[in-house]
Design a protein around this nucleic acid. Structure first.
Length: 491
RNA sequence: GGUCGGUUGGCCGAGUGGCUAGGCAGCGGUCUGCAAAACCGUGUACGGCGGUUCGAAUCCGCCACUGACCUCCA
């Protein structure tokens, strides 16, 4: 059931029919986080976007190898500490071993991913575990003549590369403009041009994270790790490379150049970029100081949060916008998503219990084809969800006896919802509070519900309402449906 | 300053040269002892000014505002 899907390729700025290099198999690489701070809402966007792609491709029958790295070395900070590694800087402040910092925030990231129901990638390589490969990559680029050594560091020679290649093709920049617009930063005398970037950096004496190399004791440049690791696990040419839009320049542009310089060919066939999460219209980011961590969302402990939001609400909130659009955070929008998600999940659970009829008054086949068509059009999850809500309406109408469904259509509908809601969108019913799973509590509440039922039978509204009101006050949600009264404990 | 985007109804957010996206909120109704839920009905939305067109929110031009990148960033 390999369907034709279109994806937007940043390289060509067009939607293209996706055709993997090897039929039936997909290699994809996505830039993961730099583990030097808590995972925040911004990190959730690419994680969820490419989790959706990963899940959908698998659903369509592709065998996917999904590589998402952890950056734990090599990021240079531009502020106060000249040339100091981000990880090492944080370590000094906290008086922790650098690898301790890496571990803390790697764990934090993994925890956040689990909460968001983001599947583990096939391979999650760490930059620090691939120093040998990166040194090899530097060697290849040097040998090809596209890099030069300077005072123990090795720089990529952008201008030389640009003579025979299109540097700037991904980000739409022209080399001449780049040359005239590059900022003159201090401490760059080692470079021939401000455009050049380090692929190996000599470590200063105080720099703790360092590895021996033919050029100096030092560490690899940030852009290089992705090239080295994607090549190692996916080959010199692979299908999809993803990441945040903010990485297109210089990071991904540099990756293109490094791979071409080292291997003589273009590595990536489809470049995909997710857009940013904004806060009051401005990008949410650690360096901007306006990031809300995922932990804070779950607990509601941030001044901007009016309440706690479950990870599934965040996931659904993101899926309701297209991945290439900016998505503005607001309490109002999150609350709307929370309610919409609740409606979708409740309907999904109901399908199996719907009554069946000899005929259907609804068209399930058309609904199904609409949902797939939306997803096949560059992963248009908001449209797909809009169609699922049409399905929700069908489900509720059938439950109300206002529409009918054959047994075969009910199975079809259930399969569709199970596939999309659970497997592809990765939504799940939140685990209830531990106490709600307590059998004794359940029995007690059932007892109260029975008392209320009796009171109702006796038309003793005062008692029945008292029970309902007090349970509601405690945090229970009581509903009288056709099938009888139901209760659930709200968070 | 350069490159690339965005501007849609109370909020969020899709999309298309002519036909109701969807969610949330609101309003009216059905159901219910009441409520909740559900269902039905309900909105002359597309930044401004020009142009192309039988017809543009959708294409073109100009303007305004706004964002991302150009330095680490998801």
């Amino acid at each position: 059931m390999l369907q034709e899907i279109q994806i937007y390729n940043t390289l060509t700025r067009k939607k293209e029919v996706f055709q993997p290099l090897v039929p039936g198999k997909v290699g994809m690489y996505v830039c993961g986080p730099t583990v030097y701070g808590p995972a925040h809402l911004g990190h959730a966007r690419p994680a969820i976007t490419f989790d959706l792609l990963f899940r959908y491709l698998k659903h369509l029958g592709y065998k996917v190898r999904y590589v998402r790295n952890i950056t734990d070395v090599g990021h240079l900070v531009a502020d106060a500490d000249e040339g100091e590694d981000k990880i090492a800087q944080k370590a000094r402040l906290d008086e922790l071993e650098p690898m301790e910092v890496v571990q803390i925030y790697t764990n934090d990231f993994h925890h956040a991913m689990r909460m968001l129901n983001v599947e583990s990638p096939s391979i999650e390589p760490r930059a620090s575990g691939h120093i040998i490969e990166q040194i090899e990559e530097v060697r290849k680029i040097l040998k090809a003549g596209y890099a030069y050594e300077s005072n123990g560091s090795v720089y990529f020679d952008v201008e030389k590369y640009a003579q025979s290649n299109d540097y700037g093709q991904l980000s739409g920049r022209k080399i001449e403009d780049l040359i005239s617009n590059t900022r003159a930063l201090d401490g760059q005398e080692e470079k021939r041009s401000g455009l050049d970037f380090a692929i190996w950096k000599k470590a200063q004496p105080e720099h703790i994270m360092r590895w021996p190399s033919p050029w100096s004791d030092g560490f690899p440049g940030w852009h290089l790790e992705c090239t080295a690791m994607s090549t190692k696990y996916l080959g010199e040419t692979f299908d999809i490379h993803g990441g945040g839009m903010d990485l297109t320049f210089p990071h991904h542009e540099a990756e293109i150049a490094q791979a071409k310089a080292a291997n003589g060919k273009d590595a990536v066939r489809y470049w995909m970029h997710n857009n940013m999460i904004t806060l009051n219209g401005q990008k949410m980011g650690k360096s901007l100081g306006n990031a809300i961590s995922l932990e804070q969302f779950a607990s509601g402990s941030h001044p901007l949060l009016e309440q706690a939001y479950s990870p599934m609400t965040i996931r659904f909130f993101m899926l309701q916008a297209h991945y290439r659009s900016t998505l503005d955070f607001s309490n109002e929008a999150l609350q709307a998503a929370e309610k919409g998600l609740d409606r979708l999940m409740k309907a999904t659970v109901k399908i199996g219990k719907l009554p069946v009829s000899p005929t259907s008054s609804v068209n399930i086949a058309e609904l199904k084809s609409n949902v797939y068509a939306a997803m096949n059009d560059d992963l248009n999850s908001p449209i797909a969800i809009a169609y699922l809500f049409e399905g929700v309406k069908m489900i509720n109408s059938v439950a109300d006896g206002k529409a009918s469904l054959t047994a075969a259509d009910r199975e079809e509908l259930k399969a569709l919802f199970d596939a999309f809601v659970y497997d592809i969108f990765g939504l799940k019913v939140e685990a209830q509070n531990a106490s709600a799973n307590n059998e004794v509590l359940t029995e007690v509440v059932d007892l109260l519900m029975n008392l209320r039922l009796q009171a109702k039978a006796n038309k003793d509204w005062a008692t029945s309402d008292k029970i309902r009101n007090e349970l509601t006050a405690i945090g229970f949600d009581i509903k009288d449906t056709k099938e009888g009264a139901t209760w659930e404990l709200k968070k």
